[in-house]
Nucleic acid binder design. Structure first.
Lengths: 131, 131
DNA sequence: GTTCATGCAAATCGTTTGCACAATG
DNA sequence: CATTGTGCAAACGATTTGCATGAAC
């Protein structure tokens, strides 16, 4: 069931470009850059190859994990736990760690106002089902 | 320049529904629920009101902050800093905090495998520009 | 009676996919 | 030559928006 991959100039250049930048580009940024050197390139190809590179474990996508926006009536600061099996998002009661912002400020000199944490794993119900 | 809001049954019910659930619903979940009691309700109205409630500070959206998927060729675990002014995403060199997962496990009994943190604030360039 | 909200449908935007053709192995 | 990748354009799914009508103040 292993997938076979053939090399392609497009995929190679996408990976190189991604490896050579410290920013975290979007697909269309990559498309615009490479279009200059590969004029026949299409945006669909960029997306296809990004997904292949993720399958290959060579890159990763930075996203929230959900295609849907989700809304929360609890506006007080809190962390979230996301169950990898059932997808539910659960508010955590553990205290906000104020030290973390300071640690980043010291390491970077960036003005660090706040942070968010999502924990991933199995919720109560799902870990019982897995047993 | 202050915005004026008039009350509407739809918005009131959306806020109530959101306040009465521990889950973090999507717009269409809210739509499905309320459609039963307000049959003429439209999905556009749900979205419009969710955005108004956010403006009013009564609810918040749980998202990554970016509409675009972003890709990263650095697959080693690390945290991100997101500049609120220029939107750039910067890899942080501070060590991963393994204690955090344990803290969550103790508080919840959830099997906690990993976590992600994003810090928000102003990057170097932008904090200089603001001065 | 002016302003803001609604329902509906069309539009938008990022991403995915079907297809015929080209490149890889 | 069998398989995988490409470009193109159409399709998709979540969200937004234009417009005529309706409710709030």
């Amino acid at each position: 069931m292993e997938k076979k991959y053939k090399r392609s100039k497009q995929r190679e250049r996408i990976l190189e470009l991604l490896g050579s930048t410290v920013s975290h580009p979007t697909a269309s940024w990559i498309y615009d850059k490479l279009k200059k050197e590969i004029p026949e390139l299409s945006l669909g190809t960029v997306y296809r190859n990004l997904n292949i590179l993720i399958e290959q474990g060579l890159i990763r996508k930075i996203d929230f994990g959900s295609t849907f926006d989700r809304y929360d009536a609890d506006i007080s600061p809190h962390y979230h736990f996301i169950c990898e099996r059932c997808g539910s998002i659960i508010d955590l009661k553990i205290p906000i760690d104020g030290e973390l912002n300071k640690r980043v400020e010291k390491a970077t000199n960036f003005k660090t106002k706040r942070h968010r944490i999502e924990f991933y794993g199995l919720c109560d119900k799902c870990s019982k089902k897995m047993a």
